[in-house]
Design a protein around this nucleic acid. Structure first.
Length: 257
DNA sequence: ATGGTTGCAGCGCAA
């Protein structure tokens, strides 16, 4: 069994105590992190290596930053989305036990129609092109991370209020669906077809967590070779609770490999 | 309520 988690931690330095406790309690084999908000030299390597994780980093100052933690060796590490001219650290991939795994932080997009929104759609298109390339390898492929897209209204606490707003607009959803149509399975939804309130993010503002005003933004997309061996996928809501929590909860998948 | 909260950085910006 291989356990893989993805978690937008919103600053690795602010979240370090919580992350260490969570790693000890859950002992996942692989963890995909987003929004580490640290350059590689600021990343708390030793504390995490002490828990027997190998680390692949793609950091930057202040913003973004992605990482892969793995109890198994990390091979063929690639930083950045190929052919995407962009200095922001939003993509890293590596091969773990024959499975190619990517940790992805899709731009938020700020507001529909804004410059950042165009940049988000551009990122998603380049992610599509790269994924198309990766699928030609015909190996187990796992894309995980904060996609900053709700796949459908089912993934939104108040679809009417968010109609065609950022995270919910038709072009964003079309980009996500196009990715899926390459043959990738949305792991969480596949195992919880009709579940409402299957959220991974709750705004810090307005008591969103307390009122369960959430959205499903963090996803695992699986190639058929990975999706065929997925007995379990869930959101670890406990990690969103308590003091100094990230605004995202981890998504956890287990694979029979 | 064009609000609210958090993190980085050092005050406004990004989310």
């Amino acid at each position: 069994m291989l356990t893989i988690a993805t978690w937008n931690i919103n600053s690795v330095r602010m979240r370090l105590p919580a992350v260490l406790v969570w790693l000890k309690e859950n002992a996942p084999d692989v963890v995909l992190l987003q929004e580490t908000k640290a350059i590689n030299d600021q990343f708390p390597r030793e504390e995490i290596e002490d828990l027997h994780y190998n680390i692949a980093l793609h950091g930057q100052k202040s913003y973004n930053g992605v990482a892969i933690l793995s109890k198994f060796p990390l091979e063929d590490i690639q930083c950045g989305l190929p052919n995407f001219k962009d200095a922001s650290a939003r993509y890293i991939e590596a091969v773990v036990r024959g499975t190619r795994i990517a940790s992805i932080y899709v731009p938020n997009g700020m507001a529909v129609g804004s410059e950042k929104y165009a940049y988000k759609l551009d990122f998603l298109q380049h992610l599509y092109q790269h994924t198309q390339q990766l699928l030609t390898y015909d190996e187990r492929l796992i894309l995980g991370g904060d996609f900053n897209v709700t796949p459908t209204d089912q993934d939104v606490y108040d679809p009417a209020a968010w109609h065609e707003k950022i995270l919910c607009s038709t072009p964003e959803r079309a980009a996500f669906r196009t990715l899926q149509h390459l043959g990738l399975t949305d792991a969480l939804r596949a195992l919880h077809t009709d579940a409402r309130e299957l959220y991974t993010w709750w705004d810090y503002r307005g008591g969103a967590w307390q009122n369960n005003f959430g959205m499903r933004l963090d996803h695992f997309l699986l190639s058929p070779q990975a999706a065929d061996h997925l007995p379990e996928a869930f959101v670890d809501k406990k990690a969103r609770d308590g003091e100094k929590a990230s605004d995202h909860a981890p998504v956890i998948c287990r694979f029979e490999v």
